[in-house]
Amino acid sequence: MKSVFKGILSTLSLLWVSPLLVLFGLSADRDTIRYDTKCWIENLDRPNRSPLVNLLYLLAKHPEFRNLFYHRIFQSNLLSRIVLALLKIVYRPCPYLFIDNSSKIGSGLFLQHGFSTIIMADMGENCWVNQQVTIGYKDRSGRPSIGNNVRITAGAKVLGNIKVGDNVVVGANAVVVKNVPANCVVVGVPAYIVKRDGVKVNEPLV
């Protein structure tokens, strides 16, 4: 009986967010949203159902995904933005996650927890951002550019007009204010390289 009740509640929650599918239909970038959905379902280790059911599940149960979805919609076209503004009155975005609308973000971004996180940067594909992360301006010189397959873990700060290469891991609570080469792991305050191309090192960022 309990499982039946849970099933009914789950179905109702999906039906509640189903009007957001209008935004998906209006989007000019549905392939990116589909890919985002696929990545989130895999990273959350959820059963893989139909793409639309997966999308509705994420919109209902994961407010961080809803913010990313809204970012994709805002990037689409004027009609999408108008409908988005109306639907956001009812379907509120996650209040503790900020993704700047000017940011260009590649497909497959995964936001784990997303609490107290700010993204104000251009990012490549298949990136992963944990909670309490700030990626953005340090001063007027500019903001970061993040490569593909970059993971920025809990509490890290990536600041200023810098470039972070592909396949980089930024350790917890690291503060990155200089360029990071590809295929590196960086940690510390200020951040330095502890692994490059799979080999342990101890190198400053320059």
Rank of each mutant, 00 (worst) to 15 (best):
L59W: 00
V83S: 03
Y96T: 14
S80Y: 02
A85E: 06
L59G: 00
S50F: 01
S50Q: 11
Y57F: 13
Q75L: 11
R46L: 15
T37R: 10
A85M: 11
W40D: 10
R46Y: 14
N77D: 15
N67Y: 13
L79I: 14
F74A: 13
W40C: 15
K61H: 07
L55E: 05
W40K: 10
R72P: 13
E64I: 01
V90I: 12
R81E: 06
R92V: 01
K104E: 14
N43P: 05
P51I: 07
P63G: 06
N43V: 12
I82R: 12
K61W: 03
Y91S: 00
L55S: 07
F65I: 03
Y70K: 00
F74N: 09
L56Y: 07
A60G: 04
R66N: 01
L97T: 07
I105L: 07
E42S: 13
P47A: 11
H71G: 10
I73C: 04
S102F: 12
K38A: 03
Q75A: 12
R66C: 00
S102D: 13
R49C: 01
H71E: 06
D100K: 06
S102V: 09
Y57P: 01
Y70N: 01
L86C: 06
L79N: 05
F98D: 01
Y91F: 14
A60P: 06
A60M: 03
I105E: 01
S80R: 04
F65D: 07
H71Q: 12
N67V: 10
K88V: 05
